[in-house]
């Protein structure tokens, strides 16, 4: 097995043994569920856009909570030193950890399929295509959030600080799309491009635009590489 997959597997199975993971999952699903119960059913619209928006917004808290320990905790307990001296590359460690959290995100998103089930039972004219692309968009956006969180986690060995840094960076990228009425329109048109909302929009409409895929992939790769450089810069090892 690829070392990155071995690490991803370990990350995922260890996360599943931790009570805090279930609390994080639970809170996330609970808030989404409450919103869904209060709004979607009342309106009676066979539409997932609203709930997708909430799910995306909650990523701001949910994903930093999942990623905050990924590197910071291993560094503070010293196990990072242990795995860094094995014959694997640093990129294996970083990407493995990324995949581990991504599996967690997929797990939680699977639970939200309940909403799809309810809508398909009670709604009329459900656009399954848009639901599919919506999930795909959330997955891509989630990957970008995870990469940001991992980078934050690589900066410090304090998990709380890692959470705050991740929240600040992803919050900045999140808020850009919502400050349209605060800044000049011309300027907004330029910086809007750097917001998550702008790129998620077409996914929610049921359109997969390769530019949006590339944008999310680029953010993911850049922050994962930054995390890797950060570990390298600490001279964990040379050219691993």
């Amino acid at each position: 097995m690829n070392p990155a997959l071995t690490i991803a597997n370990k990350e995922y199975s260890l996360a599943n043994r931790s009570l805090s993971t279930y609390i994080i999952y639970g809170v996330y699903l609970l808030v989404c569920g409450i919103w869904f119960a209060l709004n979607a059913l009342k309106i009676g619209a066979a539409d997932m856009r609203g709930i997708f928006g909430v799910m995306h917004t909650l990523f701001l808290f949910f994903i930093p909570a999942l990623t905050m320990g990924s590197i910071a905790k291993e560094r503070s307990t010293g196990t990072l030193e242990l795995i860094s001296t094995l014959p694997i590359k640093l990129s294996h460690i970083v990407w493995g950890k990324f995949l581990g959290v991504l599996f967690q995100l997929v797990t939680v998103l699977l639970f939200t399929l309940v909403f799809v089930l309810l809508i398909s039972l009670f709604g009329i004219g459900v656009d399954y295509g848009a639901i599919f692309t919506g999930y795909l968009g959330l997955l891509f956006a989630g990957a970008a959030f995870i990469a940001i969180g991992m980078f934050a986690s690589s900066l410090t060995d304090n998990q709380v600080l890692a959470f705050i840094i991740a929240f600040a960076i992803s919050g900045a990228l999140f808020i850009i799309g919502r400050i349209g009425n605060l800044i000049p329109l011309k300027l907004f048109a330029t910086i809007e491009y750097f917001g998550f909302d702008y790129h998620l929009e077409s996914f929610l409409k049921g359109v997969i635009d390769s530019r949006d895929l590339i944008w999310f992939a680029a953010v993911t790769i850049i922050f994962i590489l930054l995390a890797q450089f950060r570990l390298q810069a600490q001279n964990l090892s040379q050219e691993r």
Binding site: L14, G78, T79, L82, T85, L86, P87, K89, S237, R240
Partner: peptide
Amino acid sequence: PLAASARIGYLPELNPLYNE
């Protein structure tokens, strides 16, 4: 480094392990 670390066994100070 990869080939070298394959030949080295290392017990770090304070012996970090995955408690879970």
